[in-house]
Structure formats: structure tokens, C-alpha cells
Computed example of a mutant assay.
Amino acid sequence: MNGAAARVADATGNWVDTLAPRWSRPYLRLSRLDRPIGSWLLLMPCWWSAALAAGVAHAVWQLPLIIVLFFVGAFVMRGAGCTWNDITDRDLDALVERTRSRPIPAGQVSVPRAVVFLVAQALIGLAVLVQFNRFAVATGIASLLIVAVYPFMKRITWWPQIVLGLAFSWGALMGFAVTFGRIDAAAVLLYAGSIAWVIGYDTIYAHQDAEDDALIGIKSTALLFAARTHQALLVFYALAVVLIGAALVSAGSSFPAWVGLAAFAAHLIWQIRRLDTGNPALCLRIFQSNRDAGLLLFAGLLADAVLRAGV
């Protein structure tokens, strides 16, 4: 199979296609390193929580290391999660135009080799996790149950995005677990707000596959909301902002954090106004822009932490 044919349909022209050794490309695609947006979205709640916890602690000396470890852990574990997802969804992926070129249904990686690759990624993730305290290690391991069941949810419920939210928002708990060895009310509120955010942005993402999903019997909030997607996004995005705001109140956050939240909210409003669910390419671009929304909030939380630490 030549290099062009081996590419995943919605991820061409990236560094994996052009720079990575040819033998490694199917595995890098399996872990979605050709499309790192999902890793960034998994990382955002981790960074939010780390910065918010640092603000509560009035200390930022550990924060740079925590930020780096969360970065590595998010990218590795998102790759492991995607590998698991592709193993379980290989037959369904073969039926969908956008996903049939993924490495397993395309025949680039066998299932046994994918399992070995999954284990290797999980071990790297574990090596990162054990750098933290025991409570944080246990909290991180607890997320694996949600990750394991997520791929099956689209077969049985119209709300698989809720389960994805539970998994992708887990990092909102981890910053407090790492910093304090406990989970405070602020972390729980941040977690709930992040779940609402994930439901919103993954609904946008799911609109890319709505027609194929309807034909093969896959369920999603994109199909559930259909023409009411804009109204649903308004509800979930508003809920995200309110809950994250409640987390800031609980954490005693100062002005910079609120500026970050306001910028985050403004970006979400822009997404709703710009969205055309009948335009898959636009849906993908708006979905991807959530990394920028998350970074705006993180910048505010980070500035708040530095200010409160008196640096």
C-alpha cells in the first residue's frame, strides 16, 4: 500500500504522513498522533485542575512539573484509548466513509499487534502516573473502567457523549488529587462543567458521521438533537460555564480566572453562532477550535495561580 493510500481520510498532510518512518505510520495513526486535537482536549481539564489547585494552595513551585507530566500522560493515554476504541470498533469503522481508512479496518495493523501496542502505551502512562502520590495513582487508575466501556455506549444509548465526558473530563479531578491527595468540591464542580463542555463539542464532532451512523444503527447526541443541535449546545455550553464558574467561587479564584472564563464563554458562543451541522468540514474545524477555548480558560487559571502565589 503506498503512502497516500495508507492515510486516514480526515487526517492528511500532517507530520506522520510526511516525516515519520514508513513502518511507524500505522501505529502513530492508531494512537491519533496524526490528529492530536483529541489529546489536547483530554489535556485541558488536567491543566485547568492543576492551575486551579495551585491557586488554592497559593503555591506554584510544583506546577511546571505537573503540567509537563499531564501533557505526556494525556497524549499517551489518549493514544491508548484510541487504540482500544479502534480494536472494539473495527467492524463498524469499516462501514463508515470517514473511518474505513483507519489502520485496523484498512489492514495496516492486525488486532494482535494493536493489542501489544495498546499495552505498551498503557505502561508508559502508568510510568507517568506513578510519579504522583498514591491517592492520585488510584484516582487515575479508576478512570480506566470508563475508558473501557465507552466504545460500546454508541451501540446502546443516544448519549454516548456523556460517557465520553466522564472519561475526557477525569483530569479535572487529577490536579487536586496530585496537589492535595484529595478531591475538593471545586474539583467536582470543574469535572461537572467539563463534562457538559465535552457533550457539546463531541455533538459537533458527531455531526460529521450523522448520515453513516443513522444507516448502520450507531447512536449519538448529533442524531438525537438533529435540527435542535444549536439549542442543545446553548444548554450544555451554558451549563459548562455556570459549573466552572461555581468551581472558581469554591476555589476562591481571583480576577484573572474570571477573565479566562469569560473568554472561554465567548468562544463557545462563537461556536454556536458559526456552526452549520450540514457542513462536515466546518463541524470539524469548530470542534478542533475547542482546544483554543480550553487554552483561554487555562491562561486565566494559570495567571490566577501565579497572582495568588505572590510570584
Score class of each variant (00 low, 15 high):
296 L>M: 15
233 L>M: 05
107 G>P: 01
242 V>T: 09
139 T>I: 10
281 A>T: 03
153 M>E: 10
222 A>T: 14
15 W>Y: 07
144 L>R: 05
239 L>R: 12
219 K>E: 06
164 L>E: 12
156 I>K: 05
49 S>H: 14
179 T>V: 12
104 I>P: 07
130 V>C: 10
214 A>D: 06
258 W>F: 15
179 T>K: 12
287 F>K: 01
62 Q>F: 12
227 A>L: 03
138 A>K: 09
140 G>T: 07
2 N>Y: 00
16 V>D: 02
86 D>P: 05
301 L>R: 14
302 L>F: 11
286 I>W: 12
215 L>I: 11
154 K>M: 11
200 G>V: 10
98 R>A: 01
134 R>E: 11
271 Q>S: 13
199 I>A: 02
239 L>H: 10
88 T>R: 07
205 Y>F: 13
246 A>K: 04
194 S>P: 13
188 V>W: 15
232 A>K: 04
75 F>G: 00
233 L>C: 05
110 S>Q: 07
45 P>I: 09
129 L>Q: 01
178 V>A: 05
88 T>V: 14
248 L>I: 04
193 G>N: 13
251 A>L: 14
51 A>G: 01
213 D>R: 07
94 A>P: 04
298 F>S: 02
119 V>I: 11
188 V>C: 13
96 V>F: 03
287 F>D: 00
47 W>Q: 11
310 G>N: 10
237 Y>P: 06
310 G>D: 11
165 G>V: 12
11 A>R: 02
90 R>N: 15
21 P>L: 05
262 A>G: 15
